[in-house]
């Protein structure tokens, strides 16, 4: 399969196979307006299989939550057909309305309109703590 290179935009490479759609959802890009290519199950020397996402003409999207979806992915910002910047993803220290608290005793389950805020507890185990009830969840298990 051949997909053209882009002159300007973002290429997210080395996404874990099967996670491309989830990454696209998190980025919240209007695919009705923007040109987006999602390549699924491409061959990868590093991972065996990978997903790749190419987004044309956009370079300023919020990537905070992306580290949470797949922090092994690599992000390349493309300008004038060349990589102008590489972004190393890491788990964000704090995320808002990305992880939803599932503790039925948490105030977020009854009080409407309050943001679900989680803080990184342990990078190695990818654990986050709810700001309100202190419930701990693994980022991958949310």
């Amino acid at each position: 399969m051949v997909i053209d290179s882009i002159a300007k935009g973002i290429v997210i490479d080395h996404i874990r196979a099967g996670y491309g759609m989830k990454v696209l959802e998190y980025l919240n890009i209007d695919t009705g307006v923007n040109t987006v290519a999602l390549i699924m199950n491409a061959a990868s020397k590093k991972h065996g299989r990978k997903d790749v996402l190419k987004i044309e003409n956009i370079t300023d999207i919020d990537l905070t939550a992306l580290g949470l979806v797949d922090h092994s992915a690599t992000v390349n910002i493309i300008e004038n057909h060349v990589i102008s910047r590489k972004i190393k993803l890491r788990l964000p220290d704090k995320v808002t309305n990305v992880i939803m608290c599932r503790n039925p005793r948490c105030v977020t389950s009854s009080e409407s309109g309050i943001p679900h805020v989680f803080h990184l507890v342990d990078e190695a185990s990818e654990e986050y703590r709810c700001e309100y009830c202190d419930d701990i969840v693994r980022a991958g298990a949310r």
Partner: peptide, 12 residues
């Protein structure tokens, strides 16, 4: 309050 974290919501 019976809900965990409710006082934090109040304080905010």
């Amino acid at each position: 309050h019976p809900k965990e974290g409710a006082p934090r919501v109040a304080a905010l």
